[in-house]
Design a protein around this nucleic acid. Structure first.
Length: 275
DNA sequence: AAAGCTGACAACCGCAAGATC
DNA sequence: GGATCTTGCGGTTGTCAGCTT
């Protein structure tokens, strides 16, 4: 409908100029976003409302992150895509400052190809072992008490193909605290997590980003949402000690709703992301 | 150096759903 | 209640820069 209308009216197409961006930004600052069909009338822009909205949402809107997606954002996208499919706008809501278009494009050029190649699992598992070894080594060096049973975790990684018992046995028995190693080696989620999801995580990562993500068991389809579930249960506004584990089988029953609860309560993604 | 390839990104299109008349 | 308009979403295409051959 809009397309045919645009054609009839002879809307300008193609890349936006700086002047057009300025006009659109001025319009939004005066009238707010929305009413896109009125932009042409008020600004003289020869662009369809649809084009204006797209330009604003994907390029001009304040708070947008520029530049490459971080490895963490990449893993989040993989995980969410496994759960949600091609719900790009939904996925984008979980990544502050990223647009659905950006994620969609990134998926097509990166993850889609990777998924098709089916190399993902083979690539990740060795990294998990490597990172766990790093953590273990650091602990030994600093002679800190063990806060988690690394042997059982590694054992899990080695046998995950054969059994799913880790989640229901080891995790249930241990309250593993290693999932979020900060620079102090305390396994907590920093309070600043509330300020933004991806940037905070990057800042607090102990090991190199690329390796750290492998600590997540992304081979488990519910892995990420389980994290959210645990976080929503344990994290308090000013005390965000985070434990991982629990009864995964129970979580399976209501995985999606719990995930949404965490989202709705702003426990996980920052308070002003959806304002 | 030039042609071809690939990745990254911006933008367009068709469609569907909700809002408004 | 139906027609029309508006908005948003997902798929797709076009363009350009950097890399490879």
């Amino acid at each position: 409908m809009m397309g045919s209308l645009a054609t009839q009216k002879g809307w300008r197409k193609g890349p936006w100029t700086g002047e057009e961006d300025k006009l659109l930004s001025e319009y939004v600052s005066l009238h707010g976003d929305g009413r896109w069909s009125s932009v042409a009338k008020f600004t003289g822009l020869n662009r369809s409302g649809k084009s204006c909205r797209l330009r604003w949402v994907n390029y001009l809107r304040p708070g947008l992150k520029k530049g490459q997606l971080t490895p963490l954002e990449e893993e989040i996208i993989i995980e969410l895509h496994a759960t949600l499919g091609n719900k790009w706008s939904t996925i984008a809501k979980y990544l502050s400052g990223r647009t659905d278009n950006e994620i969609k494009n990134y998926w097509r050029t990166h993850f889609g190809k990777r998924e098709r190649s089916k190399h993902k699992k083979k690539l990740q598992r060795p990294k998990v072992k490597r990172v766990l070894k790093q953590l273990k080594h650091k602990q030994q060096q600093e002679q800190q008490p063990q806060e988690y049973d690394i042997k059982s975790i590694m054992s899990h990684e080695e046998t995950v193909n054969e059994t799913k018992s880790f989640e229901t046995q080891n995790c249930k028995q241990q309250e593993m605290g290693f999932m979020y190693p900060t620079t102090e080696h305390q396994y907590t989620v920093p309070n600043s997590l509330h300020e933004g999801f991806s940037s905070t995580w990057q800042d607090s990562t102990l090991v190199d980003d690329d390796s750290w993500f492998s600590l997540w068991d992304f081979d488990e389809p519910q892995g990420f949402s389980d994290y959210v579930d645990q976080f929503s249960k344990c994290a308090m506004p000013n005390q965000a000690t985070f434990r991982v584990g629990g009864d995964y089988s129970m979580q399976n029953d209501v995985k999606t709703s719990r995930f949404d609860d965490a989202y709705d309560n702003d426990l996980f993604y920052g308070k002003d992301m959806f304002g």
